[in-house]
């Protein structure tokens, strides 16, 4: 344990003790006087706790929909090492899928587009995205889709029907009700507002169920899929100009800025592993990029040719 860790441990214990009557305030005073760092670390702990208290109502409300204590679960998606697995994957994706039935191809530009399906289900295709919707070969009630970009699905659940959505290296099955999918081919995010979705991939040992109030984030760089709880109301909010993130790879955030905000922001290599949690509002030009920079404590700089990029302060 480093010296800094020890100080943080001590600070946390002082803070927890400070709320009891048996707190030794004189000893705490002496501890604070030992070095200014003690005060700094204690202050961080106390402010973090104060923030928790300030959000108590919202956290209680969120908890009601997720009674079950839960740890984030991780699945190793790929059996092989990254490069080899990627090659296998590329092959799998290019395999012909039997006789091609009739299919529709939708592409969006700067605005999103509403697509109605025959059964009353609907898809809102995000800006700068495309989706192919085809009838599944050999089935009268099945549909197979392939998405690139983002889309919010509101699908009527029908156990008699088979529907699949290919999104990057993942395939979604057992689809019911409302969820959002974002993919750039490598990274995929499946956020479920209501109902559930099963996620499979060629190299995946087992199907990963994602239920309402959860998101699966697959990050190609780390070859991992992770399912985490999320606020159901945060699903698909891009349709109203808001982007919610919860520990999302910054690379995905940058793609969203391009897709939804029309802003291109370069990420230097040292920031590509970073993750972002927070809310961004799009539709006001580069302000969104400045918000992101501010929330992450980064600088937004304009380089040669007017390109915006983020960098460490």
């Amino acid at each position: 344990m480093t010296a800094k860790q020890t100080i943080i441990d001590q600070a946390a214990h002082w803070h927890v003790a400070s709320m009891r009557d048996d707190m030794d305030w004189d000893a705490f005073t002496r501890w604070l006087e030992e070095t200014p760092e003690h005060r700094t670390r204690y202050d961080e702990i106390a402010r973090a706790d104060a923030m928790l208290l300030g959000n108590r109502e919202a956290l209680r409300a969120g908890r009601a929909s997720d009674q079950r204590p839960e740890r984030p679960r991780r699945w190793g998606l790929w059996a092989g090492a990254g490069a080899a697995a990627a090659a296998v994957l590329a092959l799998a994706l290019n395999l012909p899928s039997g006789p091609k039935p009739a299919s529709s191809h939708y592409v969006t530009g700067d605005t999103s587009r509403q697509i109605a399906l025959k059964d009353g289900s609907s898809i809102e295709l995000a800006p700068h995205s495309q989706i192919d919707i085809g009838d599944m070969a050999g089935q009268t009630t099945g549909q197979a889709m392939r998405l690139s970009g983002g889309a919010y699905f509101d699908i009527r659940h029908d156990p008699a029907r088979t529907m699949t959505i290919a999104a990057g290296p993942l395939e979604l099955r057992d689809i019911g009700t409302r969820f959002d999918v974002q993919t750039d081919g490598d990274s995929v995010r499946v956020a479920v507002a209501q109902g559930s979705v099963s996620v499979t991939a060629p190299e995946l040992e087992h199907t990963v169920p994602v239920s309402g109030g959860h998101a699966l984030v697959y990050d190609h760089a780390s070859s991992h899929a992770q399912v985490e709880p999320l606020d159901q109301q945060a699903v698909g909010t891009w349709r109203h100009g808001q982007l919610f993130y919860d520990d999302t790879p910054l690379t995905l955030v940058a793609q969203d800025l391009e897709r939804y905000g029309g802003i291109h922001v370069d990420l230097p290599p040292d920031l590509r592993g970073r993750r972002f949690s927070g809310v961004l509002t799009v539709g006001e030009g580069q302000k969104t990029a400045r918000d992101l920079a501010r929330l992450m404590g980064l600088d937004l700089v304009r380089g040669a040719g007017g390109r915006l990029s983020l960098r460490q302060r």
Binding site: L52, L59, P69, E228, D231, S277, V279
Partner: peptide, 28 residues
Amino acid sequence: KAQETLMLTRAMASLPPGARQALHLYRL
């Protein structure tokens, strides 16, 4: 506010079960 709530939800969800339960009982 939304940013804080999201972040806190996530931070609580990733706590070890004992710490999460204790924090929940104590603070919420």
